[in-house]
C-alpha cells in the first residue's frame, strides 16, 4: 500500500464536486405561483393577538404565580410544614415554621409558616409543591406577568403570595371561630368569620 492512495481519493472527490448541475432560472409560472401565496395570505384572518392590549386567557390549569390560600374566616391554610420546599426540585422555596398560640393564631393547629419565600428565578413552575401541600394552602394562579429588573424583587415573600382577604374574612392573627377546633377547619365546617374573632 502506498501512502499516496488516500490522497488520490480525496483529489478524485474534489474533481467530482466540480460537476454539480446548477438549476437554470425558473419558469414565469413557477414564480407567479410564489407571489400568489403571498397575495392570497392578505385575505386570511389575522391570527395575531394584540398583546398587551388583548390578553387571551391561558389554559385553566396553566402553572402561573403561586398563591397561599386562606380558610373562609381568613386564617391561613399554610401550616409551615415545608413539604413544598421538600418537593421543590429547584430548591426555590424557603419556609420557616413557628408556633401558633391562642393569642397569636395565624393558622389552625400548632404550627404556621412564619417565613414563606418563593424565588421565582429558580422556580420552574412544575407544580410539585402544589401536589405536596397537605392542606391545599399552596395553589397556582394563571398570572404570568412576572418579569422584573432585579433578583431581589423576584423573591416573593409571604405578603406577596397570600390570597387577598375576601368579604367575610378577617386579617390574622385571630382566634378560632367560636366553638371550633383545627379539625373543623380541615373538614370545611367553618364557612365565615365571626365578629368575636376580631382582635384589636
Amino acid at each position: 500500500m502506498s501512502e499516496l492512495e488516500p490522497k488520490r481519493a480525496i483529489d478524485g472527490a474534489a474533481e467530482e464536486s466540480i460537476h454539480i448541475p446548477i438549476a437554470g432560472p425558473a419558469s414565469l409560472f413557477t414564480q407567479l405561483k410564489g407571489f400568489w401565496v403571498t397575495f392570497a395570505a392578505q385575505f386570511k384572518k389575522v391570527t395575531t393577538v394584540q398583546y398587551p392590549e388583548v390578553k387571551e386567557p391561558t389554559a385553566p390549569r396553566f402553572h402561573g404565580r403561586h398563591q397561599l390560600n386562606r380558610h373562609p374566616d381568613g386564617l391561613e391554610k399554610c401550616i409551615g410544614c415545608e413539604l413544598c420546599a421538600w418537593a421543590c426540585p429547584a430548591d426555590a422555596i424557603y419556609v420557616e415554621g413557628a408556633d401558633n398560640s391562642d393569642e397569636q393564631r395565624y393558622s389552625p393547629g400548632e404550627r404556621y409558616g412564619k417565613v414563606y419565600q418563593i424565588n421565582y428565578l429558580r422556580c420552574i413552575f412544575c407544580g410539585l409543591c402544589i401536589e405536596a401541600c397537605p392542606t391545599r394552602a399552596l395553589t397556582m394562579t394563571n398570572e404570568y406577568e412576572l418579569a422584573d429588573d432585579s433578583r431581589k424583587k423576584l423573591i416573593f415573600e409571604k405578603e406577596d403570595l397570600l390570597a387577598p382577604l375576601r368579604s367575610g374574612m378577617l386579617q390574622p392573627p385571630h382566634p378560632y371561630y367560636p366553638g371550633t377546633d383545627d379539625q373543623d377547619y380541615y373538614h370545611g365546617r367553618v364557612t365565615e368569620a365571626h365578629p368575636s374573632q376580631e382582635q384589636k
Binding site: T58, C123, I124, F125, C126, Y144, L146, A147, D148
Partner: peptide
C-alpha cells in the same frame, strides 16, 4: 448560576420556559 455573573442584566424573566406573552411582557417592561 445566573447570567448576571457574566453580563449586566436589565430584566429577569422567570418561567421554565416562559410563554411568549411573558417574553413580550419582559420586553415591554
Amino acid at each position: 448560576q445566573g447570567v448576571d455573573h457574566v453580563v449586566p442584566v436589565d430584566i429577569y424573566l422567570p418561567g421554565c420556559p416562559p410563554r411568549p406573552e411573558m417574553l413580550m411582557d419582559a420586553i415591554i417592561k
